[in-house]
């Protein structure tokens, strides 16, 4: 598949990255080369093959017990105000 520069812009936006325009060409070329190498998968017969999302065989659950943790969020916060993490003005209302 061909990665267009608008695809790239869309993905950069989705991933909340900031890539200078001058570097985009390089990224585009490198990514295209990598995507082209994915053609190796097209040679496989994957009909009827189930995906393997994980090789873990565990089914671990946790008992419903609560406890208090020794963590002080204010010590790691970039900006702390009124017992919370401060974030700048939100323009986009929808999560």
């Amino acid at each position: 598949m061909t990665l267009t520069s608008s695809d790239l812009d869309h993905v950069i936006e989705l991933a909340r990255l900031d890539i200078p325009e001058t570097e985009k060409t390089l990224y585009l070329a490198q990514l295209q080369k990598i995507l082209d190498s994915m053609a190796a998968l097209d040679k496989l017969d994957l009909s009827g093959v189930e995906p393997t999302f994980s090789t873990s065989q565990s089914v671990n659950l946790r008992p419903d017990i609560d406890r208090v943790f020794d963590v002080t969020p204010s010590e790691i916060a970039p900006l702390w105000e009124e017992n919370g993490f401060q974030v700048p003005k939100i323009l986009d209302e929808e999560a």
């Binding site: 105000e81 017992n83 919370g84 993490f85 401060q86 974030v87 209302e93």
Partner: peptide, 12 residues
Amino acid sequence: AIAGSDYSIVDL
């Protein structure tokens, strides 16, 4: 509300 606010505080 969000509209008009200068900044927000996150409580987790």
